[in-house]
């Protein structure tokens, strides 16, 4: 026993050393950008690695960003698109998952496979035709176009995850509801939905991140100033202000912060979702 304890000390030091260096590698770029966004231009270049102090502190970058770019508008657009899509994906996804996991009907398996196709085949490959449809429907440069596309994109994975969870909801409960004369809709909304809430949270996080971060569809379907999302807004803004380092660093920080805050709040949910319960 004693020999085991002594040999495990250097090993645990090595383990921590590797993990700490990788953590630094993962966080350093993000921290560097955020710190430097609070500095004067001179300080950014003279000592990029030092913290902002009383002398080098400056908000000029943020002032430029807020004056020149409509970041509040972009946030609002991103928020509307993400929240509405999330609601639609969760509602439609849960309904379809319930149908697939609860009832036996002809074509059940086939329908499940059909809906799972979208997990592996990216919706981007249909862009050419999606743009044509949106042009035809007059939805170009509207948030509706983005919401529709992202809903279609999010549904396959949502249905897949939720139907796994719904299979585990006890049949006795549902049958008790049926004997009490509840309709199938009431059983779904009143009994089943509250029970799969943890799975819904996982699906929500998984659906949200790619939508908030996507550049492709905003660039193609809604590039107008009024419909720009944060990701596209930051991309365009930085492209225009390439040489104004204060503004670029501040724009990047503004794009990083909201998602970082959300992540800190929901990280347990997200990680538990990925590792599907294996983590305690």
């Amino acid at each position: 026993m004693a020999s085991k304890a002594t040999s495990s000390l250097p090993r645990s030091v090595a383990a921590h050393a590797i993990l700490i260096s990788y953590t630094v590698l993962a966080l350093f770029p993000v921290i560097l950008i955020i710190f430097n966004s609070f500095k004067t231009r001179k300080a950014i270049f003279r000592s990029p690695l030092s913290l902002p102090d009383a002398e080098s502190f400056s908000l000029i970058g943020y002032r430029t960003v807020l004056e020149q770019g409509d970041f509040f508008g972009y946030f609002q657009n991103s928020l509307i698109v993400t929240v509405v899509t999330l609601l639609l994906v969760l509602l439609f996804g849960a309904m379809a998952a319930f149908a697939l996991s609860e009832y036996r009907f002809r074509g059940n398996t086939l329908m499940g496979l059909y809906l799972a196709l979208g997990i592996m085949i990216p919706i981007r490959l249909g862009t050419v035709a999606i743009l044509q449809i949106m042009v035809g429907a007059g939805l170009v440069n509207t948030l509706t176009a983005l919401i529709l596309v992202y809903t279609a994109q999010g549904l396959p994975l949502a249905i897949f995850i939720l139907s796994e969870f719904m299979r585990s909801v006890s049949d006795d409960l549902k049958n008790a509801g049926r004997i009490d004369g509840l309709s199938e809709y009431t059983i779904f909304f009143r009994l089943v939905l509250p029970l799969v809430r943890p799975a819904m949270a996982t699906v929500a996080v998984f659906t949200m991140i790619p939508i908030w971060n996507d550049l492709w569809f905003p660039l193609i379907l809604a590039p107008a100033e009024e419909t720009k999302t944060v990701t596209l807004g930051a991309q365009v803004f930085i492209g225009q202000f390439v040489t104004n380092w204060n503004a670029v660093l501040s724009a990047l920080s503004l794009a990083i912060l909201p998602i970082l805050v959300l992540y800190v709040i929901f990280s347990r949910q997200l990680i538990r979702g990925i590792t599907s319960g294996a983590v305690k």
Binding site: A129, L148, T151
Partner: peptide
């Protein structure tokens, strides 16, 4: 779910 998925994803892919 099937309507949105088919209209915005499957049909454009084949389109």
């Amino acid at each position: 779910a099937v309507l949105v998925y088919t209209a915005i994803m499957i049909i454009p892919l084949f389109g």
